[in-house]
Design a binder for these strands. Structure first.
Lengths: 244, 244
DNA sequence: GTCGCGCCATGATCCAGATCAAGTTGAGTT
DNA sequence: AACTCAACTTGATCTGGATCATGGCGCGAC
């Protein structure tokens, strides 16, 4: 007790707003007690690192609030933000733990975030006693893997404009504020540079595409504020036929 | 007994040459017996489909011999071969099963292959009674996920020539025949078109890059035979610095 | 045989997006 | 306010790879 950093409220997980959405819900009371006792919550300021690329994986991180991204440094020294963002309810770091690897990227709080740490030993202990827990992580991993493969070849197949439109629509689901007139306001959680790196493009190209969308009247960009004027047209571009 | 198709020898898994490399090894004798009894092995000829994109996922497929690839049809009707190939010992189809999805791609035997089918119900039953089995699949999924993310941004970062060099070196590990003079002969398991689709490129571009490598004396291509003359130089291109 | 039909090679041209090079804006600091 | 530094915009230019078009070649079917 008595940390220099203000500790996040170390509430019982059962009271955590996002608990139901995590893989951890559904364990026995005894195991829950163990988890509650051992977990360590803490507040991270925007820009602060939670763990570093190359670090040994000491456990997993359950995101209570805020937003966390994973960064890698590519061969040329550029910082690249991976597509898979950590929203509240997401447990980060399970991949390297289970694959027996070091962290492949640096986790950084993209907004002020509250994060609970669960040590590797405890995770393994819980996994052994709760086959369901493993299955839920397996389900999660299977989903992630599907998305990663999907992204891989969507990326190759579609031009930048479409990929940006797609990303906007995804972010809208998490950060969108719907207006009465059918338009939507989205607050981008990342800089344009990060936006670019997430889509495998350069910032200049993003700027140009943004200008295009702006001129076409599809959306208005101002700093990190995006006002989507014509969602239907954006959807149309992604899938002219009308999916499914 | 008495199928129109020649059934693969329905040997006990314990005698299967690749059994030790699969996720299935390490279960109790009783569970093994159950698996042996219920599995269905069969021979697939080159080009034959094992399951189809969009099919409900009825179980998983353990590859005993041969080679299996996953194809998707992209928006423009082109066939795209995914990077993740199924070598002997690989269990295919676990991803959609665990994610509760339909098959996202068509599995096709790239060579004559023997494949054992294990029904979904049995898989779930075994997973519940064998936490370790789940953990091994989790480990596998975690590895696959790591590779998928790695590929994603390697693809964006490197030009075609490097990506082809990399793929060649991977295939070498599975299909290479080392000669005394240090050169290697690789028999490509796929057509140039598939090669192209795996790397998100067009066949014409592959042809041109191949000609380049040929002229530079790095490798000689003749049909599906590739004679790698200077592996060290190929490695050098991938990582001029000298990894690690 | 030769007909057809994928697969592959090669040339000519085009284009999305990268790269290079200045500016501009904007938030934070002293 | 003036200074700084990073994020952004905009323009000019270059280029890897796509696209379009054509011809050769290997192979199975008849």
């Amino acid at each position: 007790m008595g940390d220099s950093k203000a500790p996040a409220s170390q509430t019982d997980c059962i009271f955590c707003k996002v608990f139901g959405r995590t893989e951890w819900s559904g364990m026995s009371a005894a195991d829950m007690a163990k988890l509650n006792e051992a977990k360590v919550c803490r507040q991270f300021d925007r820009g602060e690192a939670i763990f570093y690329e190359g670090d040994e994986c000491r456990g997993v991180y359950c995101i209570k609030s805020g937003l966390v991204g994973i960064r890698k440094i590519d061969g040329e020294g550029n910082s690249v933000l991976l597509g898979r963002l950590g929203y509240p309810g997401t447990t980060l770091g399970y991949r390297p733990l289970l694959a027996g690897e070091c962290h492949r990227g640096t986790a950084e709080a993209l907004e002020d975030s509250q994060v609970c740490f669960i040590a590797a030993g405890l995770v393994r202990w819980l996994l052994e006693r709760n086959p369901d827990l493993g299955l839920r992580f397996l389900h999660h991993a299977a989903k992630d893997l599907g998305n990663a493969e999907e992204d891989f070849f969507q990326n190759a197949a579609h031009p930048l404009r479409l990929r940006l439109a797609h990303l906007l629509l995804v972010l809208k689901d998490h950060y969108g504020e719907n207006f009465d007139d059918g338009t939507v306001m989205v607050e981008l959680p990342v800089t344009r540079q990060d936006l670019a790196s997430m889509m495998g493009a350069r910032p200049e190209s993003i700027s140009r595409v943004i200008k295009e969308l702006d001129q076409d009247g599809l959306a208005t960009f101002s700093g990190r504020q995006v006002h989507i004027q014509r969602i239907d047209d954006l959807l149309w571009e992604l899938d002219p036929a009308g999916e499914a």
